[in-house]
Design a protein around this nucleic acid. Structure first.
Lengths: 236, 236
DNA sequence: TATGTTTTGTTGCTATGGCTACAGATTAAT
DNA sequence: ATTAATCTGTAGCCATAGCAACAAAACATA
């Protein structure tokens, strides 16, 4: 299969990627011929990138799925994220000063990924300067939003007490929904993971809060009954 | 004082900022006339920006110092960072989709700051397209490094046990210095803050580890005596 | 050298929350 | 409709780490 055919096969997937936001199908081909990305297929459990090794290209998942895993110094692997088609990896490392992969990327199943050099993204060629600028701005937006998300995560992790974490989370949901009654999108396990606490301990605290008349809940539907008291309990 | 005089007064400070990295003194003036930044002075305890309010411009501290503070839902303020001259604030919010300040910025002492619109940074004008591109790439680098730093912080905060945090930190220092004997740059209090634990508890654990023959230390000088055992203790 | 200030180490007490194990609900699958 | 799988709530036990309070060491200043 020729390169152009390969590209066109994955065109709709690439257009869904944040990197090619606001870019039209017609222009994508011109850009790809300039970016000269490499398309590589992997078998299950193959390594797409290895933590600590030289960073050689921004990736986009074209087919299958990959796992982002972090190895601690003891060598144990923790899955940080699972990415499916159209998702990017390496976006933080690509334009930072540290030119190494901050995590390992493993094929969760047989998969295909596209790699491109960060330099090609920021480089200008005569015929597509306009698009390069769009690409760079898209990158800036992607990285900024990632930083914002990480910032929020740090906020939560910094709160020391179980009740403080729960109150902060519930008040944020209340603020976002504009309603004292709302549904949680996460299951108990996921929420416990997000807040970095154990599920039983979290459930225990939720029950206590229900008993105290601060909140009410059943499965994923929650109701805040006493906003003011909840606020005072945040830094307990 | 005319605007140009104002700019030249702060030229050397601006040139130290990461935003104007690789830009020469001569070019800076041209760029500033295009960016049209606002220079504003504040009295001690004045607000430079308020969390949750409409984001109106990227800032650089020109004189004095400012505090980045986060208010939790209960209204308590926690100082996240102190910035002195040449440091930026608002760099994460500037190019993210959420157009609001993620934190409050307060004048720690009488201070002066420069504000500029993110749109002006990414916008192109005829005479300085080249510089705009440089600015955008500098921004991309700044935000990427910030994201990488936040990522590292999340790593540490996610580790649950005291010993795990300490082992991870010491092994990172060992790896960075390439030597089993090294000096810590942080005081005990600062390190405890960074790891989000209490100082006495941290000291107690350090002493235990010394007793067990894993490490040795006196004040800021540390020595790792048993790398392998240290690694096995990371996820305890 | 003497004095004050900051930093570091140590200890006992105690609350918090992790862990395991299980039972009851709920959802999915056949 | 029945079974299987997953999710949620509860309880007891106990290790971890926070807190307060103090002593000792290091550093700063006169």
């Amino acid at each position: 299969m020729s390169e152009n055919n390969l590209y066109s096969k994955y065109q709709s997937i690439l257009l869904k990627s944040m990197l090619f936001k606001n870019i039209e199908a017609g222009d994508l081909n011109v850009m790809l011929s300039c970016l000269k990305p490499k398309i590589v297929s992997f078998k299950r459990n193959d390594f797409l990138a290895i933590e600590g090794e030289y960073f050689d290209g921004l990736g986009i998942v074209l087919a299958g799925s990959v796992a982002i895993v972090k190895e601690n110094a003891a060598g144990n692997r923790v899955i940080m994220d699972i990415l499916s088609t159209s998702n990017m990896f390496g976006e933080i490392a690509a334009f930072s000063n540290k030119g190494i992969w901050p995590a390992t990327v493993i094929a969760q199943e047989a998969c295909t990924a596209l790699f491109m050099s960060p330099q090609k993204i920021i480089g200008t060629c005569e015929n597509s300067c306009r698009w390069h600028k769009l690409l760079i701005l898209n990158m800036l937006s992607i990285v900024s939003n990632k930083a914002l998300m990480l910032n929020r995560k740090v906020q939560y992790l910094t709160i020391k007490s179980m009740r403080g974490k729960i109150c902060t989370y519930l008040l944020e949901q209340y603020k976002d929904s504009g309603n004292k009654t709302f549904m949680l999108s996460m299951k108990r396990n996921e929420l416990a993971d997000f807040l970095n606490v154990s599920r039983p301990s979290m459930s225990r605290e939720l029950s206590r809060m229900k008993e105290e008349g601060l909140i009410d809940f059943h499965l994923s539907s929650f109701q805040i009954k006493d906003v003011e008291t909840l606020k005072t309990q945040i830094d307990i």
